[in-house]
């Protein structure tokens, strides 16, 4: 087991008190697996990634167990965590624009990453080799004029270029677990497809496990073995991709699937789930989705269902399946 998350709770201290974001989060990942996390904005996807890399904002608190190769990250000291970051786990942040150190050239930031891998794995690379590798990686990312880009400062690159530089760091470090937080937001469709293929390739060649965070169910489907759907900080459904798409269990997943623009030309309008996600300070009693659920009944408004495993390897949090 590469990653095992048990009963993870993450909360933020805020003006209005403590906001509990992730509650009762469970996840198990084998080596070489790709899991997608899907959910509306604000459902806690990035928070999950930050908890796994132990890089939550200062106001964030994580409790529970995050076992990476058997070590509980939640309990690790900062200096022990440093050794995990980079080569064991690496995360591509959601906001690409600010991800590179503004006062250092792109090249030296890439080489720094190579150097870390170099020291940890005792590869004894020379400076030239490291430089070449950096250029090579930029080429893989199809950045025009890699030699030129190496010399530039981050503010001299476009958002999409910065994002690809960050992705190339993942290629360089080859972590056992890669968390990609909406890595394709700043990219156009062709490059997006290319990044998805690249992730697949990394997964195949290096047995790299990937947690892919996205809004986009179709991307998740293309890429991953399993899809986890989140709603307001909760896992509502976890299912192998194929069956999630074909036979979604949770009404929320169903709604998400209906809002994917497949053939809206024929129907004319695009489906959308009515209402908006609840505030973390004002959660409805019972199921968190009950205000927007088309299949809501009595029980949903009284008590929150538990995430239940089912025989086919899926799990769902819904009274319909109790």
């Amino acid at each position: 087991m590469l990653l095992e998350i048990k009963d993870l709770n993450v909360s933020y201290k805020t003006v209005n008190g403590v906001a509990s974001i992730l509650e009762d989060f469970q996840l198990q990942m084998q080596e070489g697996q790709i899991v997608s996390i899907v959910g509306e904005s604000g459902s806690g996807k990035s928070t999950l990634g930050q908890a796994v890399t132990k890089l939550l904002p200062m106001s964030g608190i994580a409790e529970g167990q995050i076992l990476l190769n058997g070590t509980n990250i939640v309990k690790l000291r900062e200096d022990q965590m440093t050794e995990q970051r980079g080569t064991e786990v690496f995360m591509i942040f959601q906001n690409p624009l600010n991800s590179l150190n503004p006062v250092k050239r792109v090249g030296s930031q890439l080489i720094e990453a190579i150097n870390i891998r170099n020291t940890r794995k005792k590869e004894n690379l020379t400076e030239e080799l490291m430089y070449e590798e950096a250029v090579e990686t930029l080429k893989i990312m199809r950045l025009p004029d890699p030699d030129e880009i190496m010399k530039r400062y981050p503010h001299e690159l476009s958002g999409g270029q910065v994002q690809r530089v960050v992705i190339s760091m993942a290629i360089i470090l080859k972590p056992k677990l890669l968390i990609a937080d909406e890595p394709t937001t700043a990219l156009d469709v062709t490059i997006q497809a290319q990044v998805i293929n690249l992730l697949k390739q990394l997964n195949r060649e290096y047995k790299m496990s990937i947690i892919f965070i996205t809004h986009d169910l179709s991307l998740a489907y293309v890429l991953s073995d399993r899809i986890i759907v989140m709603y307001a900080g909760r896992i509502v459904e976890s299912n192998p991709s194929e069956s999630l798409i074909k036979s979604p269990l949770h009404p929320y997943t169903d709604g998400l699937l209906k809002s994917v623009p497949t053939d809206y030309k024929t129907s004319g309008t695009l489906f959308s789930i009515s209402g908006s996600p609840p505030s973390f300070f004002d959660m409805p009693v019972g199921c968190r989705f009950n205000l927007r659920c088309p299949k809501v009944f009595e029980k949903c408004r009284e008590e929150e269902p538990k995430l239940r495993g089912r025989t086919d390897g899926s799990s769902v949090r819904c009274w319909l399946y109790e």
């Binding site: 890399t53 890089l55 904002p57 200062m58 900062e78 200096d79 440093t82 050794e83 970051r85 980079g86 080569t87 690496f90 995360m91 942040f93 906001n95 600010n98 991800s99 590179l100 150190n101 503004p102 720094e112 990453a113 870390i116 940890r120 981050p154 960050v166 760091m169 470090l173």
Partner: peptide, 16 residues
């Protein structure tokens, strides 16, 4: 220290 590039630095495996 709250910026993304600082965190990416840590993410790469630089000590705090």
């Amino acid at each position: 220290m709250e910026s993304e590039y600082f965190k990416l630095g840590l993410m790469k495996g630089i000590s705090r």
